[in-house]
Amino acid sequence: MILQYHHVDEATPASTSTTPARFAEHMAYLQEHEFTVMALPELLDALKDGRSLPEKTVAITFDDGYDSIYREAFPVLKKHGYPFTVFLNTAPMEAKGFLSWAQVQEMIDSGASMANHTVNHPHLVRKREDESEEQWQVRIRSELKDAQREIVKHTGQDYPILAYPYGEFDARVKGLVESLGFIGVGQHSGAVGRNSDWLALPRFPMGGNYAAMDSFATKVNTLPLPLEQVKRLDREGKALSDAVVRAGERPQLILQLASKSLAQALQCYQQGKALPGKVEGASVHVRAEQALTPGRSRFNCTARDEKTGRYYWYSEPWLVSSKEGQWVHEE
């Protein structure tokens, strides 16, 4: 599992914040239940190389580079001896509320790693007004390459791992990220396995209500859903190249699993409501009951393992434009 935090603070936006007390509880839980906490680059290298990992393995990550990571989270992590990764958007470094490079270096000296979250934290999939495809390509490449250059300059670390700002990506963005040799990390839920999409790895967000201890305990004990194929369809049953749809759409998802019994146990949800599913052998077919509205949405699919009580988990993120194909809050 890869855990995602933003602020570790009581005075920041609740939806992206974990209180210092709750964060300390999370770390204590990992220690008490004998989890192996690995540095994210080490974890990903092990999976890509096919090496076996301890049964309960977690990587801890933070997005954006807020100074509460240093003030509140770092002392707790250092006490437990846990490595962690900070995804930095480099433009606000040294500004009020954000990390300084000196703080970054102090954390690196205690086992932290720094990775890429772009320069300016843009919505990567969105073109600016009157921006051509070529101009968009140049701008987004610069966001990644310039951020990486700054991180290498100040830290000496050069991990080709990108956390997508806002967790947003499409086939075009993934292709660009792949061309630059990066691994892509999202904000959709689920456990990571050898068969995961290396351009869209899931993480468990730990802000707001998602940080509750019962929810935390369930999520850090999850397993990657053993998938053989994923198909995305529009309401008419036509194949989608990625999970980007227009408002009003009711997309469909077909998951081909490794076993019929797992397919029978699988339940998918949209915004907390169960989606009706059709099971055919080891294949599960679900569709949105309600039309999607502009912004971000997702299907979460889980199945409980009867022997261990742990959950297999898969999340499909949908990125929804307006009915006209425009984005909310266009840059």
Rank of each mutant, 00 (worst) to 15 (best):
E316Y: 00
G97W: 02
A171G: 06
E168I: 09
N89E: 12
T308A: 10
Y269M: 11
L3P: 01
Q105P: 03
K174R: 15
A11G: 11
N300V: 07
G281M: 03
V245Q: 02
F84M: 10
F62G: 00
T308Y: 12
G184E: 05
V245S: 00
G309F: 10
F182E: 04
E131A: 10
D49F: 13
Q256H: 12
E106R: 04
P276D: 12
K145I: 10
W318I: 02
P83V: 05
S215D: 14
K145M: 11
E10A: 11
L180V: 05
L223Q: 03
L30H: 03
V177W: 00
I254P: 02
N195I: 10
L275N: 07
V245R: 00
G184A: 13
V328C: 11
S110N: 15
A200P: 01
E143Y: 01
P75Q: 14
L292A: 03
I60H: 01
H6N: 14
E131P: 05
R126T: 14
Q148F: 07
S132R: 08
F87W: 09
A258D: 08
R194I: 08
Q137N: 08
A171H: 07
W136Y: 12
D170V: 06
N209G: 10
M38K: 03
K219F: 04
G272T: 11
A211M: 05
F216I: 07
F182M: 12
R287A: 06
S189V: 04
I254A: 10
T222G: 07
S215N: 14
A59Q: 06
D305E: 15
D67K: 07
F74T: 01
G193W: 00
G97M: 01
V230Y: 14
H123V: 13
L262T: 04
V104A: 07
G237S: 15
F204P: 00
Y5T: 03
A112R: 00
R51W: 15
A274L: 07
A200E: 01
R287P: 02
L88Q: 00
T222Q: 09
C268L: 10
V8N: 03
G237K: 12
K238Q: 15
I108W: 12
L144G: 01
R246K: 12
G175H: 15
G237E: 14
E42R: 10
E236T: 14
A212C: 11
P122T: 05
Y159I: 03
Q148E: 12
A282D: 10
R128K: 15
S315Y: 04
A258M: 06
Y66L: 14
